[in-house]
């Protein structure tokens, strides 16, 4: 399966991601991007119209989970173990958000992920995240969740 399609199916299968209007933009092995439109229901500071931190956490968490599933060695589902979120600045009111997450390392049972979120100013991030997720590594010779077969490590030898 195409990884953008995998990311799209993933976010559409999560009722809360749908409720926030989160949608997949791109998916490549281990890296995904998602977008979230600005919505007045998600305002955290009514005086300024700035989005609540929790909305950004959800966008980042969703993106991180999808990046784990898009990893070539992923053989099953995932769940967040821990997630650290840093807020660099307030998101500009009226602007949608975009997040990119990268699953940069996996072991048999744990995936390590980092992510960033921006508004329309692509030069300065609104927030960053780093976390660990549960991971089920696909066995050699078996299909990963994108439907690709993991080769045997001794492939090509006698």
């Amino acid at each position: 399966m195409n990884l953008t399609e995998l990311a799209r199916q993933f976010s559409e299968s999560l009722p809360h991601a749908r409720a926030l209007g989160i949608r997949a933009v791109t998916g490549t092995p281990g890296t995904v991007t998602f977008a979230l439109p600005y919505d007045e229901r998600f305002i955290g500071d009514p005086a300024t119209g700035i989005l609540a931190g929790g909305v950004i956490s959800t966008l980042l968490d969703t993106s991180c989970g999808a990046s784990v599933l898009s990893h070539p060695l992923c053989g099953g589902t995932t769940a967040t173990l821990d997630l650290r979120i840093d807020y660099m600045r307030a998101a500009t009111p009226g602007q949608g958000l975009r997040a990119e997450a990268e699953c940069y390392h996996v072991t048999r049972s744990v995936a390590f992920v980092r992510a960033r979120a921006w508004d329309e100013d692509g030069d300065s991030p609104v927030a960053t995240a780093a976390g660990a997720f549960t991971f089920q590594m696909v066995e050699e010779g078996q299909l990963n969740i994108a439907g690709q077969r993991r080769p045997y490590s001794d492939a090509g030898q006698v």
């Binding site: 931190g53 929790g54 959800t58 966008l59 969703t62």
Partner: peptide
């Protein structure tokens, strides 16, 4: 509320909702 669900198979509340609830 049903709209708070992340993984519908389990089902479980979305991790982002948990983070948001803790932050609020």
């Amino acid at each position: 509320d049903d709209k708070l669900i992340g993984n519908p198979q389990l089902p479980a509340i979305h991790g982002g909702v948990t983070a948001a609830f803790l932050e609020v």
